[in-house]
Nucleic acid binder design. Sequence first.
DNA 1: GTGGTTTTGCAACATAGTAGCATTTGCGCC
DNA 2: GGCGCAAATGCTACTATGTTGCAAAACCAC
Lengths: 144, 144
Amino acid sequence: MSTHTHLSAAESLITAQGGRVTRTRVAVLEILLAADQSLTHDEIGLALAEQGIKHDRVTLYRTLDWLVESGVAHKMAGDDRARRFGVAASGPHEHAHFHCDRCGKVVCLEGLQPAVAVNLPGGYQLDRAELVLHGACPTCGKGA
Amino acid sequence: MSTHTHLSAAESLITAQGGRVTRTRVAVLEILLAADQSLTHDEIGLALAEQGIKHDRVTLYRTLDWLVESGVAHKMAGDDRARRFGVAASGPHEHAHFHCDRCGKVVCLEGLQPAVAVNLPGGYQLDRAELVLHGACPTCGKGA
DNA sequence: GTGGTTTTGCAACATAGTAGCATTTGCGCC
DNA sequence: GGCGCAAATGCTACTATGTTGCAAAACCAC
């Protein structure tokens, strides 16, 4: 299975960033691309294990860091102390996140960055705004 | 110095929440009240030590948790994995934070919660919005 | 295939936060 | 003022998350 000339979306993304296409990288990126929510290092590691992909905790950290540095993925700090990762689908980091306070799930909400025309006190230079919405996701909200 | 009938702001706040007025609690709360920025557990611990107030790491965690639960202080997760604490001066948690990407300092920006009239995809129930602005603080911005 | 660089895997370390339990302390009550 | 009891503290040990250094392995250009 090496004569393929067809590259998967994950493989294309990786080569486009000038990185080597490795088992772990492809698998991690595919997991992130397939996920409808932000995943923790742990969840990704579990998914890898389920696919029978042997890997090291450290490798995964480094892979994720590389994806973030390359601008392919993005990292966000949650209320628990675990960082969550997701694919930065379109454009810059200008997208909001929705954090379900019941199941703890974090989803990316693309294209709804609001008018954050805040009037900052003097001297502050605004670079980018990060918006996290808290509430209940569709799944948890139904039960209420 | 125990015949005082006058209570400090910190002491009043503590008793108002039905908690006991202890050395550590008063000191921590006074530190938070005096701070112009959000502080990490570590920074607060250092400040306590400077005041010669003996304390335990665990006690500080518990004190801070209590303050947050009582609604006196608020907790926020930063990009580093340390939680930062600040006094929730006015009203609910409806205030934004400014994170200086150069010195890492986090300040609370009261009264500038923007119109987060975001149109959520179907099914999401918005509870509260958390806004974190990134950029340079006045001090760091000057040097640029 | 060969060579050189990137990436991985391992082991050890670092930091942030938590749990259980005995001791101390604040504070209401007498 | 002293007593008792619940709340708070301090200790030790532990968990979880993330990092560093280095040797071995894997990628990929040639």
